[in-house]
């Protein structure tokens, strides 16, 4: 464990909690892409199946359980409890254009052709594009609530910090996973436009406008 990975995980946890609390407290999922949240639930489910097969550390296990629990709770709030506030018209990204190519790629390019490894690879590739429906929805509505921008900032920051974690681990531990690194770079690049606006627009004053 290093400072980049720890702050990255905490940033990721913060994003997940921010979103869940925002929906729960405001009793509304307006402006939130349910499709992205479903994709994240799939990402965690396919990546954390090793919860059933291997124990790495209490921290690792706890975080995985929290991530999976919060992801499904968020999906439940959006599609069940507060479905009346779900803005389906603007959440119109065709996720099959993400899932099918990612599924195909994970079968073609992976470290090992075993079910668990292919599912892990699928989750790594899917996570790198899972935010697209949310960014697409914001571009369609033309704005985002301030709290949603903080959620996106923390979510984007987490994988950026992981990039530094991988540099650290390559230098100090000789650890190197090309699949995770390439997907992590793609994932972080997708946030660049948003990061620029988040930093330059000083959103604390008005809603995010493209």
């Amino acid at each position: 464990m290093n400072v980049f990975r720890l702050t990255g995980d905490l940033s990721h946890l913060a994003a997940i909690i921010i979103l869940l609390l925002k929906i729960w407290k405001s009793r509304s999922c307006a402006g939130i892409s349910g499709k992205s949240q479903i994709l994240f639930a799939i990402v965690f489910t396919t990546r954390y199946l090793d919860l059933l097969t291997s124990f790495i550390s209490l921290y690792n296990t706890c975080m995985k359980v929290i991530y999976i629990g919060c992801a499904y709770a968020t999906v439940y709030l959006i599609y069940a409890k507060f479905r009346a506030t779900y803005d389906g018209n603007h959440d119109s990204f065709r996720v099959e254009f993400l899932v099918v190519p990612v599924g195909g790629l994970s079968v073609l390019i992976n470290h090992d052709f075993s079910p668990l490894e292919i599912l892990w690879t699928f989750s790594i590739y899917l996570e790198s594009v899972a935010i697209l429906p949310q960014l697409f929805m914001i571009s369609k509505t033309g704005e985002a609530e301030t709290i949603t921008t903080h959620y996106l900032f923390c979510l984007g920051l987490y994988r950026a910090l992981y990039l530094f974690n991988w540099i650290w681990r390559f230098y100090f531990e000789g650890f190197f996973d090309m699949i995770a690194i390439v997907a992590g770079v793609v994932q972080t690049v997708l946030y660049c436009d948003f990061f620029y606006l988040y930093v330059t627009k000083g959103w604390f004053s008005r809603p995010y406008r493209l």
Binding site: I56, N60, K64, W120, F170, E173, F175, A180
Partner: peptide, 10 residues
């Protein structure tokens, strides 16, 4: 050599 991924990351 470079280790294979121990999958110890979240």
């Amino acid at each position: 050599g470079l280790d294979i991924n121990p999958k110890d990351e979240l």
